[in-house]
């Protein structure tokens, strides 16, 4: 199966949906020319973003809407993929979103740390009409 961006997925905030989304993101990344190992990490980062929406944006409520848009991007001589996660839950103040202090070994904030480690550009914004919009960009390393 080939997954060509732009692609817009509408899903519900149920952890049971994460495996299918990971598979789609992994395939879209491979189809865009990312190496398998990079595609794995991209799928992990998007998974963490969606998990954070389910946990923090919606407080583990299932059945709430999430949109994931995957689009191809190019700039000068490099290309990549942008992943935009839009939720309609509790609006998160971007200033309060940070990865954990890695000197302390504790679980909190690990998902954000993973997103920031894997992706090249990460931007959280309050969305118009409520909720949060998270944009994540990954450039292909061989471009």
């Amino acid at each position: 199966m080939s997954v060509s961006p732009p692609l817009e997925l509408r899903l519900l905030s149920d952890p049971a949906n994460l495996a299918k989304v990971r598979a789609t993101v992994r395939q879209a990344s491979v189809d865009a020319g990312f190496a398998d190992a990079d595609a794995e990490q991209i799928a992990l980062a998007v998974d963490e973003a969606l998990a954070n929406v389910i946990k923090h944006g919606y407080g583990m409520q299932t059945g709430r809407p999430i949109r994931l848009r995957i689009e191809a991007v190019s700039e000068k001589r490099r290309t990549g993929l942008r992943f935009v996660v839009r939720d309609y839950g509790r609006t998160v103040d971007p200033a309060t979103i940070s990865g954990r202090d890695l000197e302390e070994v504790r679980p909190g904030g690990l998902g954000v740390h993973i997103i920031r480690t894997v992706m090249d550009e990460v931007c959280y914004e309050p969305a118009v009409g409520g909720g949060t919009c998270l944009s994540m960009l990954k450039w292909k390393s061989d471009d």
Binding site: R22, L44, D47, E48, A51, V105, R106, P107, L110, G111, I114
Partner: peptide, 13 residues
């Protein structure tokens, strides 16, 4: 075959 941060957090706990 796959583990996300919630799985890693479980192992830390």
């Amino acid at each position: 075959s796959y583990m996300d941060s919630s799985g890693v957090s479980t192992l830390v706990e």
